[in-house]
């Protein structure tokens, strides 16, 4: 247990964690519409936290902007509700600053695959030990129904009145290509699987990307409610090795195509347990201290180097 951050590692001391600890004492009235898939993410996340053994005080939940960004308004933990598309760079730096924290980032499909796409690619590439939950509802909801990066080709909206001429982005394939070491898709209508996947993702030592299908009952009425869904691990129709990059890539491609044909495939698509996390990589080259950097500022015994001792090269 950390001296200055006594919340970190509490559970290892044997403390039982109640999922209700993640419900704010006075919960702000949710701004999500009735029937919104976002409620399921909140519920699954609250369910996963006791499983992974982390408390609200040692968890940092960083979100972007949109309906999804409100997640940390209804989830009790340390939190930052940041700006559109930028949850990942903020979250990964917090993890570097204090690796003892459980860092989770969340945002929508526009946030993560559109405006923040560059950060998604690079955070996955670096394989930070953190979890990224993308609320994928194939639409811009909070701004009232514009076409999003995952909207199907031909999607009509006020910003694409003649139907989108663009193929949708392939979130799972993009995560894999970029370097994510855990890639999964789950759906709001599948709470048991969602909780399991979020638990695995949080426990995974590397960048875990969860594409979370969240129906938007207000602005995406035409879209599927993501039922029925198939769990690719449970189904006999699919046989692929989740640890094999090639097979995973093919399975992802098929899954992404199928979604727009009305078939919802969910489950784990890629898991690489061998790839070292970014923190481990940086520590191995001496570019990151062994002890959490944040601890040092609270250590009164710490010795702070001075520039005066670096001046030899200037004499």
């Amino acid at each position: 247990m950390s001296k200055s951050f006594s919340a970190i590692g509490q559970a290892e001391q044997g403390e039982e964690i109640d999922r209700e600890a993640f419900t704010p004492g006075i919960e702000p009235q949710a701004t999500w519409c009735p029937g919104c898939g976002d409620f399921s993410v909140l519920k699954a996340l609250k369910g996963a936290m006791p499983e992974v053994g982390r408390t609200p005080d040692e968890t940092l939940l960083v979100t972007g902007i949109g309906c999804s960004g409100k997640l940390n308004s209804y989830f009790e933990s340390y939190a930052m509700h940041s700006i559109h598309g930028r949850s990942l760079p903020i979250a990964r730096a917090a993890k570097l600053a204090n690796p003892g924290l459980e860092v989770i980032a969340a945002g929508g499909d526009g946030d993560g695959y559109g405006i923040g796409g560059n950060h998604f690619m690079h955070t996955a590439r670096e394989n930070h030990d953190m979890t990224y939950i993308v609320f994928d509802n194939e639409i811009f909801g909070l701004t009232k129904g514009q076409t999003s990066p995952t909207s199907p080709k031909g999607h009509e909206s006020k910003t694409q009145p003649h139907g989108s001429a663009k193929d949708p982005i392939r979130p799972l394939s993009l995560a894999l290509t970029s370097g994510a070491s855990y890639v999964a898709r789950t759906a709001a209508v599948n709470p048991r699987q969602a909780t399991e996947i979020l638990t695995e993702a949080i426990e995974h030592d590397g960048f875990a990307h969860v594409d979370f299908l969240t129906q938007c009952p207000t602005w995406n009425k035409d879209a599927k409610q993501y039922v029925p869904y198939t769990d690719v691990q449970d189904s006999e129709d699919f046989d692929f090795d989740v640890h094999d990059r090639q097979e995973a890539a093919e399975m992802m491609h098929e899954t992404e195509d199928k979604l727009y044909e009305g078939e919802v495939l969910t489950g784990r698509f890629y898991i690489d347990e061998d790839r070292r996390s970014y923190g481990e990589e940086k520590r191995s080259t001496g570019e990151m201290p062994e002890e959490p950097l944040a601890e040092r500022y609270f250590d009164e015994e710490a010795d702070w180097e001075r520039s005066y001792d670096l001046l030899d090269a200037h004499k």
Partner: peptide
Amino acid sequence: IPGQKDGR
């Protein structure tokens, strides 16, 4: 600071 007890 995140990680401090009861500072959420």
